[in-house]
Design a protein around this nucleic acid. Structure first.
Lengths: 191, 191
DNA sequence: GGTGGAAAAGGACATTTGACCATAATTTGC
DNA sequence: GCAAATTATGGTCAAATGTCCTTTTCCACC
C-alpha cells in the first residue's frame, strides 16, 4: 500500500472499490527540484496530490519578484483553483521545492469520480472548507501582523516546514524582505 | 417582488416553487448603523443575505485595532464560514456600516434547503468558488503591493464602495494606516 | 572531495510608514 | 438647526523596512 492509499484511508471512509477507481485514473509524475508543474498563463489541467516532497504556488509581481501563496508538502493537494475550475489561463505558478512525487488527475476524470463517488465529493468539500478558513486567517495576519508576528506565527504553525525551506522563501511567503527576516532571527538569537 | 427575489432570478434558474421554499425560511431583520449581527466568540447561526445597506466582517487584533476582511453590500452574502459550518465560536465580527436590511437562514434550515434543491446547491458552490478566487488575489496583493497600489486596486475594483465608506475603513481593509491613506490621496490630488 | 553557485548575513543609507498630537471639517441624531 | 461626535487632514518625529552592496557560509552536483 502506498502513500496515497494510506492517506485516503486515514482521511476518508472510502471503500476499496472506490479507492481503486480513484487510483486507476491518477497519472504519477516525478518532479526534480525547481521543476515547474504549472506556469502562469497555462491552463491547470490537473488536480495534484503530493505523495513525496514539497511544492509551492506563487505569483510573480510586475518587478519580477515572487510571492508565495501556498506550500504543499506530502499528503496535501494543490492546484490553481480558478484556472482548474474554468480551464482558463492560470495566475500562479506551481513548482517543486524538493524532488517530489505527485499524482495527477485530469479534470474530466476527476469530475467523473466526484459524480459517481458521493463520499469523495464530501471529502473534497472538506478540503475546500479548510482552504477557506485558512485564507481568512492568512488575510487577517497579512493585514494586521508585524513581520515579527508573522514569523512567529509561521514557526508556530509550521515548524516542520521551517526546517525544509530556504529563508528567502519564507520571506516570500510572509510578504517581508529577506533582510527583515534575517534581522528578526538575529534579534531572537540575542535573547 | 422584492430585492431578494430579483436577485435570485438574476443569478439562478430556480423555479417559483423553490424560491417560495427558500424565502419561507428566511428571517428578515433590520440593522441600524453600527449594530452588530455577530460578535466574535458567538456562534454564527445564520447565513446572511443583504437586501439593503452595507455590512463589514472584521477581526480585532491584540491592541484593539480592527481589520476588515470583507465588505458585504446589498445583494451579497456574508457569514463567518468557519463558525457557521462547525457551529463553533466565531473569530470575526459582523456589523452594519449603513442602516441595513438582511435575511437570515438558520443553518439547520438552510442545510435542509440545500439537500432538497439541487440547483441551490450548485449556486452555493459558485459563491464558494468565487470566494476562493478572491481570497487568492487578496492574499497576493496583501503580500506584494505597496499601499498606493492597494488603494489603486481598490478604487478600480470597487468604485461604488469608495463613495460609501469612511476612509478609515478603507485603510482597515487595505491594512494600512489612515495616515498613509491620506498621504496617498493628497499626492493624487497634486497630479 | 572539490568547485561553482546559491543562500544567508551584514553594513550603510534613504525612504516609507506609523504613532502621537492638534486642528479642521463633516455628519449625525435629537 | 445645533451640539456632540465622528471623520479627515496636517505636522513632527522616531522607528521599521527595503535597496544595494559586499562578504561569508553553505550546499549540490559532478
Amino acid at each position: 500500500m502506498d502513500e496515497f492509499e494510506l492517506y485516503l484511508r486515514a482521511h476518508t471512509h472510502l471503500d476499496n472499490g472506490d479507492m481503486d477507481q480513484i487510483r486507476s485514473l491518477a497519472i504519477p509524475k516525478t518532479l526534480r527540484r525547481n521543476e515547474f508543474l504549472l506556469h502562469e498563463g497555462e491552463i491547470c489541467r490537473y488536480k495534484i496530490f503530493i505523495s513525496k516532497g514539497l511544492l509551492r504556488t506563487f505569483g510573480t509581481a510586475a518587478d519580477g519578484s515572487e510571492h508565495i501563496l501556498q506550500f504543499a508538502p506530502e499528503h496535501s493537494w494543490t492546484l490553481d483553483v480558478e484556472s482548474y475550475d474554468r480551464q482558463q489561463p492560470a495566475r500562479y505558478n506551481i513548482a517543486a521545492i524538493e524532488n517530489s512525487e505527485v499524482l495527477l488527475w485530469p479534470k474530466a476524470d476527476f469530475d467523473k469520480l466526484l459524480a459517481t463517488i458521493p463520499s469523495l465529493q464530501s471529502f473534497a468539500q472538506q478540503l475546500i472548507s479548510r482552504n477557506i478558513y485558512n485564507s481568512g486567517r492568512r488575510i487577517l495576519t497579512a493585514l494586521s501582523a508585524t513581520p515579527e508576528e508573522k514569523y512567529q506565527e509561521f514557526i508556530h504553525s509550521s515548524p516542520d516546514l521551517l526546517a525544509r525551506l530556504p529563508l528567502h522563501m519564507i520571506a516570500a511567503y510572509l510578504g517581508i524582505s529577506i533582510k527583515t527576516l534575517t534581522r528578526i532571527r538575529q534579534a531572537q538569537l540575542r535573547r
